[in-house]
Design a protein around this nucleic acid. Sequence first.
DNA 1: TCTGTTTTTAAAATCATTCTAAACTGTTGA
DNA 2: TCAACAGTTTAGAATGATTTTAAAAACAGA
Lengths: 141, 141
Amino acid sequence: MDSSGRPYSKAFEILRKAGLRPTRQRLGLARLLFENGDRHVTAEQLQAESAAASMRVSLATIYNTLNQFSQVGLLREVVVEPGRSYFDTNTSDHHHFFHEETGLLQDIAGDAISVGAIPQPPAGTTVERIDIIVRVNNKVK
Amino acid sequence: MDSSGRPYSKAFEILRKAGLRPTRQRLGLARLLFENGDRHVTAEQLQAESAAASMRVSLATIYNTLNQFSQVGLLREVVVEPGRSYFDTNTSDHHHFFHEETGLLQDIAGDAISVGAIPQPPAGTTVERIDIIVRVNNKVK
DNA sequence: TCTGTTTTTAAAATCATTCTAAACTGTTGA
DNA sequence: TCAACAGTTTAGAATGATTTTAAAAACAGA
């Protein structure tokens, strides 16, 4: 971690490596996203956070940025509910618990679930990735 | 299979067992859904099909029916893309290939993927189900 | 058949997300 | 340093899937 005094240097580096212009709003959002460990955020949550940090960023830019970050591999979009997108700052191989009542998403380390035999993908296709979502709730069995 | 002449008897039975009133539109939709093997449909697709079969069913009823059927376990909702819901007539334990370019969803038999060690669910929660989505595309590796 | 409850419906409303076109900012080269 | 252009941000409108509304229609039991 190299945040040697200059608060935006880490975010700046991340953007530079990704080939994205270091604009004011991208730098600010990158800080929120990547300087607090692994996170799962929706666009609305990120907007609330940036407002709380008194950054002026439009919702359109939040969406643009989340999508761009996903495209360059800085984020991973996790689809658990119709009509709401989560973005995960952990892009390494791993899976999720999804708490249906609260909407909470939790990482499961890649090696904590072992997927055995993966069947042959349909002809002409390549496996892009495997998503495993373990849906949990508070019901008594 | 007991479709002894009376075309709606199977659909009627399904609704009766589920405790849902056998209305004209529920019977018609149940026929479309359950008398053609395993299927994955969206609300719009089902609407198009019912129109093609010259049934008069509003889109609101299609949505109501798909949700009710899911609640009573006749259908399983599969979430693969933000902003579009698929309903699967196969409610047994199984998983899916999802073809990102075409939106095509294909079943993977439950025993064709072996999930090894499932980690302990978070305290106070029970595993509701495990969804595995194998995302495939046409890209050359 | 009558009556009360459920269901269906068209239309409006909602919600997350994307688009638009104009204003603004970052970068490059003179 | 500054002009000039491409890339970015923005407010607001637009979109698209889904849900809600409130009223009309259909179903079930007596």
